[in-house]
């Protein structure tokens, strides 16, 4: 079973290109306010992550995803479902 600990390094790698402004990404990094992603970039990065983990992230869950950790936990939950 894929756990959060397995997901996090892969997720950080995928998100790194979007973190040029702040340099180092952490679990607590806020995807919107710190990375400065606009709605289009959010959609692009989510599509990338969906394909990477072969999941579909419901739009309904997006308001609860603010940080890298939130996103990782969402992926973990979807992989379990």
């Amino acid at each position: 079973m894929t756990t959060y600990a397995d997901i996090l390094p892969k997720l950080l790698e995928t998100l790194q290109p979007y973190a040029k402004k702040i340099g180092h990404l952490k679990e607590t990094t806020d995807l919107v306010s710190e990375l400065g992603l606009d709605s289009l970039q959010v959609m692009q990065v989510l599509l990338k992550i969906e394909d990477q983990f072969d999941i579909s992230i419901p739009l309904n869950n997006l308001p609860n995803i603010r940080t890298v950790k939130d996103l990782g936990q969402e992926i973990e939950m979807l992989l379990k479902a």
Partner: peptide, 13 residues
């Protein structure tokens, strides 16, 4: 409309 009904909403490219 998708949001109002309470279904799970997924988006495709």
């Amino acid at each position: 409309g998708c949001r109002l009904g309470g279904a799970e909403v997924l988006r495709f490219k």
